[in-house]
């Protein structure tokens, strides 16, 4: 039996989670908020991967596991596959999603009405910062998934070309 979750609920939950951690619990320490959100994502990824790999054959190497995350795992989460996978063959993988669902509906410039146009460059930095809070959760999911597949790694996200989003996976030696 497959149970589905309305996408808007997930969006609302993600927004609420970020706002609670950033503005209530850890308003003074954004660094700590980010780590908490990442940790939640980690547990989600850790548990999801257990279910989704149930009928897969065993993975023999890192690339197979990463491919699984790009294809099956991503399809389960976002109903699409990762669009582009790049690697330097030395433990760094870049997973690029050209239309990352969780950031498509974030307003590109929520501060525009309040501030004058002159602060444009400053705004961009602020927007990038506030959007990046929403990316710790998916980063955590990827890290959780890969770690439980036996690949300890760090994951960071890059959104310089919105709504495309690249996740950089660095495997720990």
């Amino acid at each position: 039996m497959r149970r589905e979750v309305a996408e808007s609920c997930v969006d609302a939950m993600l927004m609420e989670m970020v706002s609670v951690f950033c503005h209530q619990f850890y308003s003074a320490e954004p660094e700590l908020a980010a780590r908490r959100i990442e940790a939640i994502g980690y547990q989600v990824g850790h548990q999801l991967v257990e279910r989704y790999t149930m009928d897969c054959p065993r993975f023999t190497d890192h690339l197979e596991a990463i491919k699984f995350v790009c294809k099956d795992f991503w399809s389960e989460l976002f109903k699409k596959q990762i669009d582009n996978l790049k690697t330097n063959h030395r433990g760094t993988f870049v997973l690029q999603d050209n239309m990352f669902r969780w950031i498509t509906r974030i307003s590109p410039n929520p501060l525009q009405e309040n501030t004058t146009k002159s602060a444009g460059a400053n705004d961009d930095i602020q927007v990038a910062q506030s959007t990046s809070m929403y990316l710790y959760f998916p980063c955590g999911i990827i890290r959780g998934a890969l770690t439980s597949l036996g690949i300890p790694c760090t994951v960071s996200a890059d959104i310089s070309h919105r709504p495309a989003c690249s996740f950089v996976v660095r495997i720990k030696a």
């Binding site: 991967v49 257990e50 065993r58 596991a65 439980s148 597949l149 036996g150």
Partner: peptide, 9 residues
């Protein structure tokens, strides 16, 4: 004795 290993080790 039988063994079974998941992808998550």
């Amino acid at each position: 004795v039988y063994g079974y290993i998941t992808n998550t080790k």
